[in-house]
Write a protein that binds this DNA or RNA. Sequence first.
DNA 1: GACGTGACTTAGGATCAGTCAG
DNA 2: CTGACTGATCCTAAGTCACGTC
Length: 612
Amino acid sequence: MSDKIDNSSSHSNHLSGKKRKASDGNGSNGYKKRKISNEDEEESIITNTKDSIKMSGRYNYEEDDEDSNIKWKTLEHHGVRFPPFYTPHGIAPLHKGKPLILNPVQEEIATFWAQALGTDFTEKETVRNNFEEEFLAVLDKEMGVKSLNNIDFDPIVKHIEKTREERNNRPREEKKREREENAKLDAHFRYCIIDGEKERVNTVMVEPPGIFRGRGEHPHAGKLKSRILPENVTVNVGLDNMIPKCDVPGHAWKAVVNNPEATWLGQFKDEGREKAGTKYLFLAPDSKIKSKNDIMKYGKAKKLKENIEKIRADYMRRMVSKSMQEAQLGTATYLIDKLALRVGNEKSEDEADTVGCCSLRVEHITIEKDNKITLDFLGKDSMRFHQTIEVHPLAHKAIERFVKGKKPEEDLFHLINASRLNEYLKELMPQLSAKVFRTYNASITLQNELAKYEEKPRDDVEKKVKFYKNANREVAILCNHQKAVPKNFDEQLKRLEDKLKEKKKKLKELQTHKKNLAKDSSISKPKMPKTSNACDTAIKKAKKAMETEEYKVSEKIENKNIALSTSKINYMDPRISVTWCKNNEVPIEKVFEKTLRMKFAWAMSEDLEWKF
DNA sequence: GACGTGACTTAGGATCAGTCAG
DNA sequence: CTGACTGATCCTAAGTCACGTC
């Protein structure tokens, strides 16, 4: 196979596979399907229909107009990687004390379970029931297994532990070699050529089989994810580009399509799981396409900023409308704006019960006195939102009106939904949708917080970075970005606090020593400065060390369950950070790690005067 | 409108790799 | 040299939103 993509950015016309030939015929449902004459195999090439397909298979790119959906003209890549097939270990679990001999398919599934054992996950009733149902279904009837509880997976667990140990204990060299080999394989799939440019691909491997782990109380947690084979995978390739070779022997892609209206290189679906959606393999965040989308996203948020007064006035007006539906639109928009809530699309019974603004139920809200309300619900990823907030008196009144006479399980905003709300937002500003408020509010919060910084000449970079992180934290809190408290948080904190105590003690000692020295300059103590001047220097240093520790402790506490990274990656316009850093002489790498600097390369050279 | 779904962004946790103190 | 810690990267679930269909 050609390695052109791997090691050069030059155009490759020699990617593996066969060059596609001209097309014929029309197909169905959104794609145009064509057969290619070919000696030994049939390949169907599917081309996106919509408008362009009118032109019998070739796009006339010159005619692309502004609002065309075409995302690229040429796209060439090596397809997708598959995880290795399962190698049976032959260890039998015990069924009622007797070895249960499994075939490789059964054994693989038993091993998934054994791998998960020992965690809370496998103790959940839903998980056990789902897994039991699926596992028993693949066992042979004659085995007579009636319950998961009758199977002892311990032999497999032991085996897994042993192999893990062995793998860990391999010589350093061998591990390194394996890593390098893997990196090489990865590199083969890691890049594509899109519109003549070499770009990184974000994900190159399809998901391995295993046990589905939903978040929160997911009704399907514990079900099986089946092995994805090339027959489940569709690849998207430029019409005149090489078709990636399917290098799993004896297998072939489900389809090869030419869909320049989409940016994915590959997509796959676990046909065994009805409710599972299509998964995609996309480009990396530093790619042109992703960057362009990001720029547009922040552009929209900035536009919202310019119109925010007008928009707020509008939804406040609606909030008091006689029409209940209008009032709900206004109030929901108010909450989305004020609390940075997500819009809240409807969800099915087959998902965890989480909500956003439009799907809030009466049971999620408590009306308090003094214009306050308490919101308590599970949002995306089953993250809890629990806050008591003072709202505008009119909002308070409106909410009282919506709640009246409803049962706890009824919708707070029963006359609207996410798409109705977004429709309304479109009237206010073209392209406006609910999520733009989150981007806007995150960005404006960061900017306002950072603007509070008045440089004290003596502030060093460390202090400035601390200030930045505090601003970042405000945004994370606004967006309710949380993380699990680390398992041994208390120990870790204690260790830090001990260290701080030590530094404090050290400082005290130095200070007393200095006083003593002043009384009697002949005093000499081991490891202590000899002169008053030397004391001053040492004290200064010790103070600094103490402050650093102090900061570590407070950061640890303040970030206990707050995730700063999500807002950095997705919400705060990077130009705010870039310009603040430049204006305050903070090296950008102190606040943006390497991947962020790559993702936001487009923002790195922004003018000092730029404002969100 | 309700509903399904395609394509994309957003999300937290797991894992990996490098670092640092003991 | 080792084990704990940390930051970066990987993984994939879970949202949003537009669009087509009925």
